[in-house]
Computed example of a mutant assay.
Amino acid sequence: MNTIYNKSSKSASNNTIKQLSTSEFSKWDCYVKNHPQGSFFHLSGWKEVISKSFNHDCYFLYVEIDGKISGVLPLVEVKSKLFGHALISTPFCVYGGAIADTPELVRQLEQQACQLAEKLSVDYLELRYQEKQESSLLLKQAHSTFGFALAEDNEKILASIKKKQRAVIRHSLKNELSFSLEQGKSNLADFYQLLSTSYRNLGTPIFSKNYFDNLVDVFGDNIDIAVIKNKDNQLSSAVMNFYFNEQVLPYYGGGNDSARGLKSADYMYYQVMCNASEKGYRWYDFGRSKNDSGPYKYKKNWGMEPKSLYYYYHLVNATELPNLSPNNPKYKLFIQLWQKLPLKVSQLVGPFLSKFLG
């Protein structure tokens, strides 16, 4: 752990701000699960996953009042000569930012994060909020999130989906596809093969398989993996799902060239919805997409309304807001070259780059 930051400090209102230690993981997670803005991406397990998978320094801050946690802010330092130096809440996650008992405590945690960003001499601090904040930090709104309530049974779920997309799902149900949903690592190899293929085809560096191993190890029963095969038992689509409170989040998904014709991704997401509903989950979080992108339009086709995300920044050494989007023209040639790589090469080289694309 980088010792540049003091493990505990006093705020202006005499609240103690500390760094999370292993002994406090359960208290931290209890707070997150009971906070209305708490998310899967605020959980303490990310500290272990990110440290083990990428060797990034983690600074998980919390406010303590009378021995009780009253606010949390997970932060990770990501440092790269190619992509810059940042302090982020939380990299590899779509949500983050401070959550606390009061707006004043949120601002105190933000202030502490700004001070830490300056001590670390990063390019910028990035806080990924779901809700608009009364913050003095710079705001960027380039992404939206999608979701909807899950009905009690399969037919009602299907009926709640927009008509055009509902027809696609009905088509997929006739394609003799198989659906396997497993906890643990029994589906992990097939999932990684399909995700790697999808990432390579998009021109995006894939994470190491070790990262997904660590996610399963750390979050256990709160993760499962769905794999779709065709009638000849050949792979088509796969997704890794996260579960938090009453929510299911299909987070990492991909497929091969057969997916489009078989409508296997549409089939898969519908099956994930139905399975989650049967287990008592009531909200389907379809995740983040860049505004007006292809995935953004695809999710709207399901009948889900976009909800803007609020990403706030404090610039330290940077002079302008970061733009690591694939739509950035300076990455165009890189993406085109990456799409031409053999799959095995992309799996070998990708992890050296993806660890900095948080």
Rank of each mutant, 00 (worst) to 15 (best):
K162E: 14
K163D: 06
K163Y: 06
K163T: 15
K164Q: 10
Q165Y: 05
Q165L: 07
A167E: 11
V168E: 10
I169V: 06
I169F: 01
R170A: 08
K174Q: 15
N175M: 15
L177V: 01
S178D: 03
S180Y: 02
Q183W: 10
G184D: 02
G184H: 09
K185M: 00
A189G: 04
A189E: 13
A189N: 08
A189T: 14
A189I: 15
D190N: 07
F191Q: 02
Y192D: 10
L194S: 06
L195G: 01
S196F: 00
S196D: 05
T197K: 05
S198V: 06
Y199N: 15
R200F: 05
R200K: 12
N201D: 15
L202S: 07
T204K: 05
P205V: 07
I206C: 14
I206M: 14
F207N: 11
F207C: 07
F207I: 08
F207D: 04
S208F: 07
K209Y: 08
K209Q: 14
K209W: 04
K209L: 12
N210Y: 14
N210A: 13
Y211R: 07
F212N: 07
F212D: 14
D213S: 10
D213N: 12
D217E: 14
G220D: 15
G220F: 07
D221E: 15
D221F: 10
N222V: 02
N222S: 10
N222L: 09
I223Q: 10
D224H: 01
D224P: 01
D224F: 08
I225R: 12
I228S: 12
I228N: 10
K229W: 01
N230F: 05
D232Q: 11
D232I: 01
Q234P: 01
Q234K: 14
Q234S: 13
Q234W: 05
Q234I: 10
Q234R: 13
L235Q: 09
S236K: 09
S236T: 07
S236E: 00
S237C: 12
A238N: 02
V239K: 03
N241R: 15
F242L: 12
F242Y: 13
Y243Q: 03
Y243S: 05
Y243C: 09
F244Y: 07
E246G: 04
Q247S: 11
L249Q: 13
P250W: 01
P250I: 00
Y252T: 00
G253S: 06
G254T: 00
G254W: 02
N256T: 00
D257F: 06
S258C: 06
S258A: 13
R260G: 00
R260F: 03
G261L: 05
L262F: 11
K263Q: 11
K263E: 10
K263L: 13
S264R: 10
A265G: 12
Y267Q: 02
M268V: 04
Y269C: 13
Q271R: 10
V272L: 06
M273H: 12
C274M: 01
N275F: 08
N275M: 08
N275E: 14
S277L: 07
E278S: 04
E278Q: 00
E278K: 05
G280H: 02
Y281S: 03
Y284E: 03
D285M: 02
D285V: 01
F286R: 03
F286P: 01
F286Y: 09
G287R: 11
R288W: 14
S289Y: 11
S289V: 11
S289P: 06
K290W: 01
